[in-house]
Amino acid sequence: MSLFSQHSAHPKGLFNTWLLPLALLVLLATALLSVMQGPMRIPVKDALAALLPFQQIDGPAHYQLVVTGIRLPRTLLCIAVGAILAICGAVMQGLFRNPLADPGIIGVSSGSAAGAAIAIVLLSLLNLQLPELINTLAVPLFAFTGGFITTILVYRLGTSATGTSVVMMLLAGIAIGALSGAGVSLLTYLADEQMLRDLSLWQMGSLAGASWANIVLSFATLAILIVVFMAKAQALNALLLGEAEAGHLGIDVQRLKRQLIFFTALGVGIAVSVSGLIGFVGLVVPHLIRMSLGPNHQRLIPYSALLGAALLLLADLVSRIIISPAELPVGIVTALVGAPFFIFLLLQQRQRIV
C-alpha cells in the first residue's frame, strides 16, 4: 500500500471552490506584510503607495527606496525560491513514493552547495576576466551540475532490481552530504576574508543579496518547472501505484524518472545558487498539502508552490525582526521549524512499522 494512501480524500464543495482564491489571498497578504515589516516599519498605506505607480507616499521619502529598492526584490526572490523548493520536494516525494524524501535530506542541496562553492571560490582565486553574463551564470550552472550529479548518485545507490530503497537513498544522501560538506569546508579554508563571509552567509541561507538578475532567473526557472511538472502530474499519480503498475498503464517509468531528476536538480541548483542552503521547505510544505488535499499531483504541485512561497516569506520575515536590527539567516529559521516536523514524520513511520 502506498504511504500516501491515508491522505487520499479529495476536497469537495465550497471548500474546493474557495481554496485557490484563499491560497492566493494568503500569499498576497504575506507578501505585503514582508514589504511592510522589518527594522523599519512602514505603514500599509505608504507600502501600497510605493508599490503602485503614480501614487504619492505621505510618509518620509526614503520609504520609496526601502520598499522598491530593498524589500520588494527580497520578497519576490522569497516567493520564487520558496515555490521552487516546495514543488521540487513534492515531485521527489512522489518519485520515491515516500513523504520523507526531500532535496536537502537526500543530499541534493549539499551537492548544489558544493558546486556553487566551487564557483564562488575558484573563480575568484583564478581571477579570470570573464564577461558579466558568464560571471552571473557561473554559480547557478555549477550549483545545477553539483545537484544533478548528487541526484544521480543517490538514485543509483538507492535503486536495485527490486526497486528503490528509501533507506538506501537516505543513507546515500547522508554520505554524499558529508562528502560535499567536506569539500565546502576545504574551499572555505582556501577562501579569503570576503569570500569567507560570502560563503558563511550563503551556507546558512540568506535572501539579503536579492538582485533583479536573480529574480528573473528564479521566476524563469519556476515557470519551466511548473509547466514540466504539471505535464507529468498524471504520470506521477500513476507512479504512486508502483513502478510495475505505472508501466502497465503505458508510462515509460525510467524516462519519467530521468526527466524528473533532471528538472528537480535544475530547480534546486538555481534556488541554492541565489539563496544559499534553505532546508525543510521541500519536506514540510508538500506533506501539509497532501494531508489536506490528497496525493493528486495536479493539485499538489500548484498548491505546494503557493504555500512554499508563503512559508518562506514568513520565515524570512521572522529572520529580519526576531533580533532586529540584526538579521538571522533564514536557513536557521526553516531548520527550527522543519527539524521537529521531520522527527514527527519519523515517529509516524515507526508507528506504522510497529
Score class of each variant (00 low, 15 high):
Phe144His: 07
Met168Glu: 03
Leu207Gly: 11
Thr150Lys: 00
Leu179Ala: 10
Gly163Tyr: 08
Leu157His: 03
Ala210Tyr: 10
Ser200Met: 14
Ile152Trp: 11
Ala208Trp: 06
Val227Pro: 10
Ala161Met: 10
Val154Met: 03
Arg156Val: 11
Gly147Ser: 05
Ala220Gly: 07
Leu179Met: 14
Trp202Leu: 14
Asp198Met: 13
Gly163Ala: 11
Thr164Val: 15
Thr159His: 00
Ala208Val: 08
Thr221Pro: 07
Thr164Met: 14
Ala191Tyr: 03
Leu196Phe: 15
Phe219Ala: 14
Gly205Tyr: 09
Asp198Trp: 01
Glu193Val: 03
Ala175Thr: 04
Ala220Tyr: 00
Ala178Thr: 01
Glu193Gly: 02
Arg197Phe: 10
Leu196Ser: 14
Ala210Glu: 11
Leu225Lys: 01
Trp212Pro: 11
Leu190Glu: 06
Ile149His: 05
Val139His: 03
Asn214Pro: 04
Trp212Asp: 14
Ser200Tyr: 08
Ala220Asp: 05
Leu187Ala: 13
Ala175Arg: 00
Ser211Met: 08
Ala161Ser: 14
Val184Cys: 07
Gly147Ile: 01
Ala191Glu: 10
Met168Asp: 06
Met168Phe: 07
Ile215Thr: 09
Thr145Pro: 01
Phe144Thr: 07
Phe219Met: 13
Arg156Gly: 00
Thr159Ala: 05
Leu201Gln: 15
Ile176Arg: 00
Ile226Asp: 05
